[in-house]
């Protein structure tokens, strides 16, 4: 049962991969030809939000130690 949250997270991830066409060979080819912003937008927004979130967690941990 402790694995159910990983299964559900995986299902969410699979739906995101498929619905936003990240796994499409054609989208990846288009990205390497610099003919669409789509993939750059996905990776860029995921990384910017992710790094902001991680910095926020570190800052909160730092505060709690103080």
């Amino acid at each position: 049962m402790k694995y159910i949250k990983f299964l559900l997270t995986g299902v969410l991830l699979g739906i995101v991969f498929s619905k936003s066409e990240i796994i499409s060979w054609y989208r990846i080819y288009e990205m390497f030809r610099f003919e669409s912003f789509h993939m750059y937008g996905i990776i860029g927004s995921a990384v910017i939000l992710g790094s902001l979130g991680i910095q926020f967690i570190k800052w909160k941990e730092f505060k709690s130690i103080e």
């Binding site: 969410l12 995101v16 936003s20 937008g41 996905i42 860029g44 927004s45 939000l49 992710g50």
Partner: peptide, 11 residues
Amino acid sequence: WPWYISGPLLT
């Protein structure tokens, strides 16, 4: 789905 939906969902 557009990029501004999928990117945050990946995060």
